[in-house]
């Protein structure tokens, strides 16, 4: 196994260019499970945790190497709430937002927030930079649009993040649990509301009909809240697996979205 441990972005991009099929190792929290259990034996690894540029967090840009631990303590409430639910403290010290995108699990905890705010993913290779919107980047369950030789550099947010943000995640344990369903709701002063859900479809799902309906309501009534909940439940595409049933996930999506809406309205 060849491993390179670049310290800056230029060296990392060069390493990725030299071995376009190399496995990119960030926090290792997903990759090493593959190594330990699924016989993953990469021939080339580019380990990027030392790359200084990827640790950057500027106003509207979060470097791919920013850990959940930093997100949890950071100023973006929706992302902080989501990051707090990722695995254990040990996982949050190592795992990164870039890794969450790279793995692109339907249950990725930060993904509903990124979907709700229409974040973009910045990719770079020695050939140049690409910026893909989250739904262009995540192409399916555990699939994404990163090309050979490309690195995820970070996520970029639109100019202004919604003022009110709330996240919730359902699991049957109080911590360290894969989401049965998760949800992020944001709302702006003008009423614009965004709803994104995780673990209830192959990729994060935006409940656009529900968004449209509720964004038009300046003071939602009990009836509109109920309708909002129903629309969200209608728009998710859950499956039944060993963690839960499609039926419960659909139902819980509606309940969670309504509660989060009440949270951002309060």
């Amino acid at each position: 196994m060849d491993i390179t441990l670049p310290r800056d972005l230029e060296a990392a991009l060069a390493a990725a260019a030299a071995a376009p099929d190399a496995t990119i190792l960030a926090g290792g929290t997903d990759l090493m499970v593959g190594v330990n259990y699924h016989g993953v034996r990469p021939s080339a690894v580019v380990a990027i945790r030392r790359v200084a540029e990827l640790q950057e967090w500027e106003d509207r840009f979060i470097g791919a190497g920013v850990t959940y631990r930093r997100l949890e303590a950071g100023p973006i409430p929706g992302l902080a709430q989501a990051a707090r639910t990722v695995g254990s403290p040990q996982i949050r010290s190592a795992g990164t937002i870039g890794g969450n995108l790279g793995t692109a699990s339907p249950a990725g905890d930060t993904l509903p927030f990124l979907a709700a705010v229409d974040a973009s993913v910045v990719l770079r290779s020695t050939a140049g930079e690409r910026v893909l919107r989250w739904d262009e980047f995540i192409t399916g369950p555990k699939r994404n649009a990163r090309g050979p030789g490309e690195l995820i550099i970070g996520v970029r947010f639109p100019d202004r993040l919604p003022r009110r943000q709330a996240f919730a995640k359902i699991g049957v344990r109080s911590a360290m649990v894969i989401a049965i369903a998760s949800c992020c709701v944001t709302r702006d002063e003008d009423g614009t509301t965004r709803v994104a859900l995780g673990s209830v479809g192959p990729t994060p799902i935006r409940a656009r009909r529900a968004e449209e309906m509720i964004s038009a309501e300046s003071r939602p009534t009990e009836a509109t809240l109920t309708e909002f909940s129903r629309l969200v439940a209608d728009e998710v595409r859950p499956i039944t697996d060993h963690r839960s049933t499609a039926e419960y996930r659909r139902y819980a999506s509606g309940v969670m979205a309504r509660r989060l809406l009440e949270r951002v309205l309060s």
């Binding site: 491993i3 190792l25 926090g27 929290t29 990759l31 380990a47 254990s88 360290m176």
Partner: peptide, 27 residues
């Protein structure tokens, strides 16, 4: 458990608490 779900292998790596089962030694 070797998948970061039990903490029995916890070590402090460069000041951070991590599961050593999820750290690639080469890294």
């Amino acid at each position: 458990c070797e998948q970061g779900e039990c903490g029995s292998c916890s070590v402090i790596l460069d000041g951070e608490l991590v599961c050593s089962c999820l750290v690639m030694a080469a890294d």
